[in-house]
């Protein structure tokens, strides 16, 4: 009993301060925007006439588009308290499936359908095993990571499958008002994802399931069904990503999407989403993707080697998580 404590009514100054700071996620978004601005300045200085061009910007965004779409799905999964290690493997499997001779026989519509269907079904299998099989997300998606890529190798015989329909490849080269279609797809997926997360009951319940599953259950949420749906959503995002990547490379291959799971998880984490679930921001995740892509872009423009680039990425992840811990402590003080 806490009779010895001072009155603990939420006093007005604390609430005002909380409102001014906004949520933890938004505060850190500001940090990521500052990092992006700094990177832009570095780019303008180190690669004058190369970095700050319309062409390079569109190129950068196109590079970010596939991993960005995957990261949207990953954000939902992590906020709901899960993890999806199988996203890269799902992309590989979907790209291979939609580029088999049989699939290609149905034309562009059939190919897109095949990619989306395969990815959605794999996501549903992940979700069903986790939600109804009561297995740990890490284990289930790790198993899927191995077996989905294995299946992709089996189907393709480890050969790249060339896309024969020129209309399909055009997905990667079409432009809408001068902006590459792939970038437009990323923008649409991100906006739809943001609305779903922040403006719908589905989004609110995703936070609830990840933040306190028992409270969600007692409130009357079907936690298992919701968990299943979140992994299905991740699968759908992978399907979209598979179509984009297949068009971009004009091939379906079992080697597509290598290490995408790590890039997506890293982007979500530095975007301020708690790996333990319950708190997170989709805007942060997208900013995270942009930070990583910009670093890669800068290194390429400056002819620097990938190992150094990877060291820089690792350092950023550690710095972001340290920041997250500090934010949590500050949060605790206001209790």
């Amino acid at each position: 009993m806490t009779a010895t404590e001072p009155a603990t009514a939420p006093d007005a100054p604390v609430l005002r301060r909380a409102a001014r700071l906004g949520s933890l996620g938004e505060a850190r978004n500001l940090g990521l925007i500052i990092v992006l601005v700094l990177l832009t300045v570095v780019g303008a200085i180190t690669a004058p006439g190369l970095f700050l061009t319309w062409g390079n910007l569109l190129n950068l965004l196109t590079t970010a588009s596939v991993i960005g779409v995957v990261t949207v799905g990953m954000t939902f999964v992590i906020i709901a308290g899960g993890i999806d290690l199988s996203v890269g493997a799902i992309i590989a499997l979907a790209s291979v499936w939609c580029t088999t001779l049989a699939s290609q026989g149905y034309g562009i519509g059939g190919m897109i359908f095949a990619a989306m269907a395969v990815a959605t079904i794999v996501g549903a299998v992940n979700g069903a095993l986790i939600a109804y099989g009561r297995m740990v997300p890490f284990i289930v998606t790790l198993a899927m990571y191995v077996s989905a890529r294995g299946l992709a190798e089996q189907i393709s015989g480890r050969r790249s499958q060339i896309v024969s329909d020129p209309a399909f490849a055009q997905i990667a080269f079409n432009k809408v008002l001068g902006i590459p279609l792939l970038v437009v797809i990323l923008a649409v997926v991100a906006v739809v994802g943001w609305v779903l997360l922040n403006r719908t009951t589905f989004g609110r319940r995703t936070f609830a399931v990840g933040g306190n599953a028992e409270a969600a259950r007692l409130a009357g949420i079907d936690v298992r069904r919701h968990t299943l749906l979140v992994y299905v959503l991740s699968g759908v995002c992978c399907g979209i990503g598979a179509v984009m990547l297949t068009a971009l490379t004009n091939t379906g291959a079992s080697t597509h999407g290598m290490l995408y799971e790590l890039d997506a998880i890293a982007a979500v984490i530095i975007g301020g989403t708690l790996l333990t679930g319950g708190r997170g921001s989709l805007v942060g995740s997208i900013l995270g993707v942009l930070v990583f892509t910009t670093i890669t872009n800068l290194f390429i423009l400056n002819n620097l080697e990938t190992p150094i680039q990877n060291i820089a990425k690792g350092a950023i992840i550690v710095a972001a998580v340290l920041l997250q811990r500090r934010g949590d402590r500050r949060n605790a003080v206001t209790h």
Partner: peptide
């Protein structure tokens, strides 16, 4: 039995939200 990461209003109406078409 509250969810720390959600707002006061979201917690009060969790699972019986005022919503149209989701």
């Amino acid at each position: 039995d509250l969810v720390d990461g959600l707002s006061v209003a979201d917690n009060i109406f969790l699972a019986h939200e005022y919503a149209s078409a989701g």
